[in-house]
Design a protein around this nucleic acid. Structure first.
Lengths: 248, 248
DNA sequence: ACAATAGTGTCTGTCAGACATTATATG
DNA sequence: CATATAATGTCTGACAGACACTATTGT
């Protein structure tokens, strides 16, 4: 598919500014488990529209910095959390005439999972170019009750639905864990996300058989019998189990 | 979240045309099974860039006609096939600096499944406003070997991957069937998509237990023992089975 | 020794795979 | 009645759920 002379001609006289394209943003639902609660990172908007409202972090594609949409998402994430290589996945793209008062707009929604320990140092990162928006962690339950900007309530719900759904048949929650963790801690994270209790034996069998974790050889001492510490193997946390967990 | 006076002021002086947004299109991978082959609808582009190339049908959001992105996708589908209510699902959004020579661009990729009988009447619909592009059905294998415009080879692969993956754990291929069909016909469609053979007994047990189909009461006579005809129930073809099919 | 948490043994139930068997048309 | 295709019977195996049981620590 070599560009013909006619095509070169066309491109030379083509000016994108003659066309009005929808406003396009990348929004992020960044999840972590903090103090036993599934939490999401929110910003307080410092610009119109919805100035002062809580919102999912996000922003425009920077055509100079970002070669792809995924890079935009990674950049946003690093700006807000300082974390470089988290689990990041595109959820859905929502577009319409009435979701932003500025006009027809599109958002490409992503979700990210970050280690609940690496994240203790926050909030207050925002190395971004933005006029340092206030960022804060809020439990997902509170966030869904809060008054979020635009359609961010729906976006958060969509991201949460994807996380819950994938937690039933993948090892995704591993991306929320620190370097080393006990199986009980991992199970607890699953239970927090799914909002239910799980069978210990079945849970362990499943994760060990999948080969997504391995014993680190270390042991965590506590008040009672010490627990073996595990770490992720190089098998992707996106690993799909042969069956889904049955929820009550 | 009532708009403050300051916000109203802001919106009044806001002009989207001052900002260059990425070119945004909706592209469609429209699948059907034709003469025993999984096929995809392609257009021959009648505009620059990539004039004359084969491509997935698609186009820009029409801010006047489309209230949401989903409406854009439905409109494109109806323009190309004349079919109104097919199975339609968003696959992925791909964006980057180098996928379109006109500049940073984004495409929201969808796939659709249409009845292989309702579609016999094609090609040549194109009721769209476009200067009647040539549309044709091509087997997916041929389409992947052909020289498609832009990154449409990758888009087609992504859509195909989604279809194959979902065929393993949902009743999605039902959306490719006519009103009435035999279980053998349905199984054949699964086999075409998955490019493998399936066990008849297990296949029937699975679909009947799921309640996604029911006997219509009619019978299809052929050369040998006649086959019971089935139709979809009102259970969604997106129905998820408790386990995935094991492929060899 | 006891309490509390970590970790195992093992039975059951569900559902997909395999494959032999029976059923019912046409020529 | 031969044959091809439709449809069923039934055994096996993988893996999740349930739950009782054992193991190991601090106090």
């Amino acid at each position: 598919m070599v560009a013909s002379r006619a095509e070169q001609q066309f491109l030379k006289s083509y000016d994108r500014r003659e066309f009005v394209a929808p406003l396009t943003t990348v929004d992020m639902a960044i999840f972590s488990v903090i103090a036993g609660q599934l939490s999401v990172l929110l910003v307080t908007r410092s610009n119109f529209p919805a100035n002062g409202c809580l919102a999912l972090p996000g922003g425009f594609v920077d055509e100079a910095k970002d070669a792809t949409l995924l890079e935009t998402a990674h950049r946003k994430l690093t700006e807000k959390t300082g974390i470089e290589s988290p689990y990041l996945e595109q959820v859905e793209t929502i577009g319409g005439a009435s979701r932003d008062p500025r006009g027809w707009s599109i958002t490409v929604l992503h979700f990210a999972l970050v280690d609940h320990l690496a994240v203790q140092s926050l909030p207050g990162v925002s190395t971004g170019s933005e006029p340092s928006e206030l960022t804060e962690w809020m439990s997902v339950d509170d966030a869904l009750r809060a008054d979020l900007a635009f359609d961010h309530h729906d976006l958060l719900n969509a991201a949460l639905g994807r996380l819950r759904s994938k937690t039933r048949y993948t090892a995704l929650p591993l991306a929320l864990m620190p370097e080393e963790f006990t199986l009980t801690e991992l199970q607890t994270v699953y239970e927090i996300i799914l909002n239910t209790t799980l069978e210990k034996k079945a849970f362990r069998r499943r994760l060990l058989a999948a080969g997504v974790i391995e014993e680190s050889g270390n042991v965590q001492y506590g008040v009672h019998r010490p627990a073996a510490l595990f770490r992720r193997t190089n098998v992707s946390p996106g690993h799909t189990f042969p069956r889904s967990l049955e929820l009550p």
